[in-house]
Design a protein around this nucleic acid. Structure first.
Length: 434
DNA sequence: TCTGGGGTCCTAGGACCC
DNA sequence: TCTGGGGTCCTAGGACCC
């Protein structure tokens, strides 16, 4: 029989906002927010910004008044920077556990069973301090017998300063009281729809959810919902994953800052997204054999709302950009409708296989494959070294009027040579790269 | 005027087969 | 007009996550 598990969830606090703050110490204790692509809406908030009342997902234009009034520091998102920080944090966490499962850019589950420490919370504190010291990123750690309870413990660790960022919910004497005070919506796996439904049946707090009958839960919320409830009861349903599984889909999409109306402009956008998706595919050493394209008008606009999407199978799994672009443009032609104000487009690759398993088709000579492979590798290298779009396909367009906007992006301090942090030397007037 | 992007899993329903 | 039962596979859509 398996030993009961102890699972820790380490979660970076206000991750993107914290990353931005690392390089601007003067912003410590000050409200900071990070915006989505297009500077459209708020996707990260420091505690101070939350206290002021800025909401997650709130449109930027809606909170401009508050921003001015409270002098909130605003950043466009800089995912290269956040990805780099994420890697550093995860590397540190790895040293503290036998099994780390990276769950998202700012979260990881840690197997903390059988740790040779009598006080698991003290150990958690040590992890927390190390990460803070080495990266500048504050984290919180929740510990519990299941992933769902570890998530809940993490929320508590964040909510009550008395716990100093680490909370263990396992065998807690006041577990039921804790759960009774939490809203069902706070549970991992219960979103807006389900919590609304549960509310209608009078199930408002987590304790009530935990004690609801299995059959009813399954009927209302399918097996996923039932798993969540069992996890709340301390029965593990969501195991730790040993190795990261191969991705099943790769998606690249963007909203346009201004509506796009012509097929020509959409062609460019779709070709660009396709190139980017193909790069991601090659980064993972994979090939794909199915491609979908979608385009849509805005949801907030007046007039016709249109959502078109279609897919096509490629003759064989590939990672070759020109093949994808040709297929994607054919898909686009099928779904394009004149007279629409398009606000978004995207490309999705599915049926992904590792490159080793890639089936070559019979009629293309091996030498041709090798030539394509070399060309792709060369382009990826050039774009990695000298910046995105150093080398690109003509189909992706030159003017790219549909491009999105990022007015307040911080420099990529850690990932681009030309944007390394510069420090002013008080004795000289010049600035030096570090 | 201005509202993100990238994923996973589950289910229902249709097509098809014997 | 009446018209079985059971299985598989695929896709679209809905739910969730960060």
């Amino acid at each position: 029989m398996n030993q009961p598990k102890l699972i820790g969830l380490a979660d970076c606090n206000n991750f993107y906002a914290s990353c931005e703050r690392v390089f601007q110490p003067k912003l410590r204790g000050k409200p900071v927010i990070v915006l989505s692509n297009n500077d459209g809406c708020v996707i990260a908030r420091s505690n101070e910004a939350k206290a002021i009342g800025i909401q997650m997902g709130q449109p930027y234009f809606e909170c401009k008044n508050l921003i001015q009034k409270f002098k909130i520091a605003v950043f466009s998102s800089n995912f290269a920077l956040y990805g780099d920080f994420s890697g550093r944090v995860m590397k540190i966490l790895e040293n503290f556990t036998i099994d780390l499962e990276i769950y998202s850019v700012d979260e990881a589950f840690m197997d903390m069973s059988n740790m040779p420490f009598p006080d698991i919370c003290a150990y958690g504190q040590e992890i927390r301090q190390t990460v803070k010291q080495w990266t500048g990123i504050p984290i919180s750690i929740g510990i519990g017998p299941t992933k769902t309870l570890a998530k809940i413990a993490n929320k508590i660790a964040k909510k009550y300063p008395a716990f100093k960022g680490v909370f263990n919910i396992t065998d807690h004497p006041h577990l039921d009281e804790i759960l009774q005070k939490m809203d069902v919506e706070e549970v991992w796996g219960i979103g807006r729809r389900f919590s609304k439904m549960l509310y209608q049946y009078g199930i408002k707090n987590v304790l009530q959810l935990k004690n609801s009958p299995d059959a009813w839960i399954k009927k209302q919320m399918s097996v996923t919902g039932l798993r969540t409830v069992l996890e709340l009861r301390g029965i593990p349903q969501i195991e730790m994953q040993d190795a990261p599984e191969a991705q099943k889909s790769i998606l690249t999409s963007r909203s346009f800052h201004q509506p796009v109306t012509t097929l020509q402009a959409l062609n460019e956008a779709v070709a660009t997204f396709t190139s980017r998706a193909a790069e991601k595919l090659r980064e993972q050493n994979c090939a794909a054999s199915y491609l979908q394209v979608y385009i849509s008008t805005g949801y907030h606009q007046r007039g016709d709302i249109y959502h078109g999407s279609t897919g096509m199978e490629l003759p064989h799994p590939t990672s070759n950009t020109p093949e994808f672009i040709a297929t994607a443009l054919r898909c686009l032609k099928k779904i394009f409708k004149w007279g629409c104000n398009y606000k978004k487009a995207g490309v999705i690759f599915t049926d992904i296989v590792p490159k080793k398993q890639q089936q070559l088709d019979l009629f293309t000579p091996i030498a041709e494959y090798e030539r394509q492979e070399k060309l792709m590798a060369l382009m990826d290298q050039a774009n990695w070294r000298w910046g995105d779009d150093t080398l690109k396909y003509g189909a992706t367009g030159i003017s790219q009027k549909w491009r999105y906007r990022q007015e307040k992006r911080s420099p990529s301090y850690t990932t681009r040579w030309d944007e390394l942090l510069t420090i002013k030397n008080p004795t000289q007037k010049s600035q030096n790269k570090v």
